[in-house]
Nucleic acid binder design. Structure first.
Lengths: 261, 261
DNA sequence: AAAAAAAGTTCCAAAAAATGGAACTTAAGT
DNA sequence: ACTTAAGTTCCATTTTTTGGAACTTTTTTT
């Protein structure tokens, strides 16, 4: 057994309730001899993996670990991670999934996973659609304050379809609903007969924001399947949100998801 | 030499420009035999310190490191508190803010808040810059005695730019000024056209010390805005200093802040 | 599609580091 | 000042690590 095992075990001792460890902590937690615990902590400190708190016998993770840990976030960019989730859900469900980003009042698809079904929604990467009139757009707008949304549309907008919000008040009400539920939904908005479910997500460090979306023909999806989509998207997004410390993430609230808009 | 040394060296290979490493990277960067590099990366992955990107031969830091690294901020709660202040000021002003710590004669950014302005200073976490030639560094060096500062630089230093201190006497004079004013300022030092304002701060209980910094393009900031930055940083820092019973905190003395250096 | 080059892995005996029990030192509590 | 707890150092034994070379796999070139 390599000393790396022991070192990794030490790192696993840290948690939100244990910010530092001592020799005796290791003896208790890992059942290792005192002598080893003592030497291991010192060695890890000498190598820069840990640092002592002041000049006490308490050891905590080092700045090096903080920095390397930070990189993890960039190593797998937000879009990559979100795309992985959408890809998984799309594979599982068979319907088309994609990732969109917002640029001003428009949303643009960044990656797409075509569904397997004969009747499927085809999205093309790079298409720009109005943010207020799509589930992806509203999932992203919901991350703004009402004031910011108003500022985005100084001259209002015109609804392109029956089911899209007709004015600012209606949009803000839909956004409030999105925040409560933790997801946005559209029906017949951009394309007739098409529904879409979207979840918004951001990275506090980089400021990036994306929407995860699954879209499908309204006629072919049962209520149960719709719930599965919502759950899968929301769970995947929530994991990423925890990692990126997204403060504006709205967790799923299933009591709102029963009612189709 | 323990394998821990090698493992720590591997972690130090990661940077904002190198998110993952391969066997050959290690051979090149650390000059170790291929066989060692190969086994080391595998061992670190097996222990959960690294993970492979997809199923490629590229290794990146693991989730474990990301999690443990996150704890650093809370373990060193001073950073967390200081970061909150800088984040608030950065939001309010729109310019980039960050927190740095000193390691010997270098300062390293620990957290960053990108500004909102189109022209903004971009800092990368983990970058090491010389302490004597930066506002953050001088804010931290000002907390030492002149004797301690001299001891840090037994062989003196060479100024990297026109506006940086050229010798020890000039540095000590700048530090004295920093103590009187309660903040440090730099202009064109690390990057031309960039100014920065920093305040040093410590935690008596843990011995941690950090610098709070706001940095901005020299051309775009009015004298009034500069004063706002100074006041906001200093006030936020003073509050924390009271909380942590920092005995070496230098309170703001606005009569010194009128003169731009 | 074959050949060449590059990248990565496995093998081995020598060299170095880790182990754990006990003795020892330092710090904390009474 | 005494007692107890916490942490460190010592030692011979056991285990891991090391680096060169041979080997396999992957990538690039012809």
């Amino acid at each position: 057994m390599s000393i790396l095992t022991a070192a990794a075990d030490v790192l696993r001792c840290f948690s939100s309730t244990r910010h530092d460890v001592t020799v005796t902590d290791l003896v208790t937690l890992l059942g290792m001899p005192k002598s080893n615990a003592s030497r291991l902590l010192r060695a890890m400190r000498d190598e820069g993996l840990l640092e002592t708190v002041g000049d006490s016998k308490h050891y905590r993770p080092s700045l090096l670990l903080a920095q390397v840990g930070q990189l993890y976030r960039f190593a797998a960019s937000l879009i990559d991670r979100a795309d992985a989730v959408v890809g998984r859900v799309s594979d599982q469900i068979g319907h088309t999934g994609y990732i969109s980003v917002r640029r001003g009042t428009e949303v643009i698809a960044a990656t797409a996973h075509p569904g397997r079904h004969a009747l499927r929604v085809v999205t093309s990467i790079g298409d720009r659609i109005p943010a207020f009139a799509s589930s992806t757009g509203r999932a992203l707008l919901a991350r703004l304050s009402d004031a910011e949304v108003r500022a985005l549309y100084p001259e209002g907008f015109t609804a392109p379809s029956e089911t899209a919000p007709r004015d600012m008040d209606e949009l803000l009400e839909r956004l409030a609903e999105t925040r409560r539920a933790g997801f946005a939904e559209s029906h017949d908005e951009a394309v007739r007969g098409v529904r879409a479910i979207s979840v918004g997500l951001g990275d506090a460090a980089t400021g990036d924001e994306v929407a995860l979306c699954i879209t499908f023909p309204a006629a072919t999806v049962e209520p149960g399947e719709r719930l599965t989509i919502i759950r899968s998207l929301a769970e995947g997004a929530a994991e990423i949100a925890a990692l990126t410390q997204d403060k504006r993430f709205f967790p799923l609230n299933l009591s709102y998801s029963e009612t189709a808009p």
